[in-house]
Design a protein around this nucleic acid. Structure first.
Length: 555
RNA sequence: GCGCCCGUAGCUCAGCUGGAUAGAGCGUUGGUUUCCGGUACCAAAGGUCGUAGGUUCGAAUCCUAUCGGGCGCACCA
């Protein structure tokens, strides 16, 4: 409906003034109508006429084009055109679906990116939630979406953990791993990481040993060693990490198709950078291989260090190339913390020199830190950083306190919504109590709104009645419902799921206002109103599902 | 020093491809009960949109400067 109207306005402008322009209709305040446009204001200068006169001319012309669909067109204020749909057109609009603009497209979505041998922290939970919602949006638009994960299975943090593991096992004795009960593996490894980190800082001999272990682990990877005792411990524990990640993702209702361990892309990255070094994209500097970012208002970064070892930069190059080899994507979305923004800009600029199409297809989104309200100081050295489970636990205990009986779907709904409702980029101040509340702008409020609507429907038989002759409250609700496809589309093109949150909350408010003043069951208009409640419940459910939040039938 | 991000009501945040009186939730104050899940609805109070300039018919939104906070700037990830 919106598109048709936009085309109609555009052709009015073309017919009247012989000017081609793209029209963007907006959703004004309800008092003004269903759609609005400021074309007349924009044209005023070009044409040199009074904007209100222009608006009047468009109005007349538009009525002749779209008389059926429009109940009225008004010229208001300095020259806005306010369009009000006929009931018939509004009813049609409310049944429309968001356009499937990405059918046939392949998208790779990379997010979460935890490191094996370390715990999942709050930031991992955040990207998992937001990344999942973004992936859902793209999928909803028809794309084939591949959710992938990247993480460091080599590097100093691995050396630290392995050092403590060896300490705990009493040496390079892989058989002793069998003594660790399955349920305690992830906890145990997390403890080992903390112990290793502390030892690295406090104990000079341990530090030397850790550095040595780190090199050995690189060797294990390079030589694909699966036999030596150390290698057996490394591979087993690495797998334990992936099992732990999988279990956590399953708990929050997401799933990754593939893990790209850093070790698996380092080779391709190194090879690529070396090739491009010869072609002049990279250059040597102080024994290292660097990309000079300054010509592009960026900074210089090292891709291969003076020992010939690929740095993180090269691994990211390898990752981009490997994703291309694996998927031949039309679009690639990468989500990381804000601190990687300028770093990634350099990597992408470097790759752009030899694979511009891959970079053109890539969007790098970044996010801030997750902090608990009240700002408890966390020391990563002691290992008491805010872990992913801490966030979930905080929500669970707030839920328990509020309701007396915890519910996992409420807890997940609460946390996910709290993360998703704000625009990505800034830090998240997470308030467990507020997130779990059934009052106000929260996930559980929307879940409850859905359950309530479903319970109305359960009490009566919904028949396929035609909606017509809308009363004001009914019209407001339907008008709000009709916005949904537009909101989805906007959220999808901007990769901003928070638009969905804002919308769903407004929708629930609109419904509650309607429901407060209009009886459904037992009213003369029961069939029509039940039909509206059905559409409303469906919209809420679809919206919540896009966000990765379950919409329960009852709660 | 250079660069990036952020600064909107007491708190947490929308609004930022420039437009009609700057919105919501929480909190505060006061209402509503013919109540289909009142875990709701209505209303009030509360804002120099960090500050100062500029562009524009029109700026929270664009530009410049400045203050405050966070982050990043070569062989870590």
């Amino acid at each position: 409906m919106k598109q048709e109207l936009e085309r109609a306005v555009a052709s009015s402008v073309k017919d009247l003034f012989d000017i081609k322009m793209a029209i963007e209709l907006t959703r004004p305040d309800e008092q003004f109508g269903d759609y609005a446009t400021n074309v007349a204001l924009q044209l005023a200068k070009q044409i040199g006429q009074n904007p209100r006169q222009i608006a009047e001319a468009i109005r007349t012309h538009l009525l002749s084009l779209q008389g059926e669909a429009l109940q009225k067109i008004e010229v208001a204020g300095p020259g806005f055109l306010n369009l009000t749909l006929s009931d018939r057109a509004l009813i049609m609009a409310a049944s429309e679906q968001a356009p499937k603009s990405l059918v046939g497209k392949v998208v790779v979505a990379e997010y979460s990116d935890p490191n094996p041998f370390k715990v999942l922290h709050a930031g991992h939970l955040y990207t998992s939630v937001v990344g999942d919602a973004i992936a859902n949006l793209l999928q909803n638009a028809g794309a084939t979406v591949h959710r992938v994960n990247f993480g460091g299975d080599v590097g100093l943090h691995v050396g630290k953990t392995i050092w403590a593991i060896l300490n705990d096992l009493g040496g390079e004795i892989p058989d002793k791993l069998a003594d660790i009960p399955e349920s305690e593996r992830s906890e145990w490894m997390a403890k080992c990481y903390v112990a290793g980190t502390n030892a690295y800082e406090d104990d000079e001999t341990a530090k030397i040993k850790i550095i040595e272990l780190n090199k050995q682990i690189y060797q294990i990877n390079n030589e694909a060693d699966h036999d030596s005792p150390l290698a057996q411990i490394y591979w087993t524990c690495r797998q334990w990490s992936y099992d732990y990640f999988d279990a956590f993702y399953a708990r929050i209702g997401t799933k990754f198709e593939k893990y790209y361990p850093e070790s698996s892309v380092a080779g391709l990255g190194l090879k690529t950078v070396q090739e491009q070094l010869e072609k002049g994209v990279f250059e040597r500097s102080d024994g290292a291989v660097v990309f000079k970012g300054e010509p592009y208002s960026l900074h210089t970064r090292v891709f291969i260090n003076h020992e010939g070892i690929p740095t993180y930069e090269s691994k990211d190059v390898g990752l981009i190339m490997q994703k291309w080899v694996d998927y031949h994507f039309d679009r690639s979305v990468v989500i990381t913390g804000n601190e990687q923004k300028q770093y990634m800009a350099v990597v992408l600029k470097a790759v752009e020199q030899f694979e511009p199409k891959l970079v053109a297809a890539t969007s790098h989104l970044t996010h801030g830190l997750v902090k608990l309200v009240g700002g408890v100081k966390m020391s990563s050295r002691k290992g008491n950083i805010l872990r992913a489970v801490d966030v979930l636990d905080a929500a669970a205990s707030a839920d328990q306190e509020l309701t007396g009986h915890g519910s996992e779907s409420t807890v997940l709904g609460a946390v996910k919504y709290a993360f998703l409702r704000v625009r990505m980029g800034g830090d998240i101040i997470y308030d467990p109590t507020e997130s779990v509340s059934l009052e106000g702008n929260s996930g559980p409020y929307l879940q409850y709104a859905h359950a309530r609507a479903r319970s109305i429907l359960a009490k009566a038989k919904v028949e396929g009645v035609e909606i017509k002759d809308l009363q004001p409250g009914e019209r407001s609700l339907l008008r709000k419902i009709s916005e949904f496809p537009e909101v989805i589309q906007q959220a999808t093109t901007d990769l901003m799921p928070h638009y969905i949150c804002t919308y769903l909350y407004e929708l629930a408010q609109t419904f509650n206002r309607f429901y407060e003043n209009n009886r459904v069951i037992g009213d003369d208009r029961e069939p029509t109103r039940l039909n509206l409640v059905g559409k409303y419940a469906m919209t809420l459910k679809n919206g919540l599902n896009l966000l990765g939040i379950v919409a329960p039938e009852r709660m």
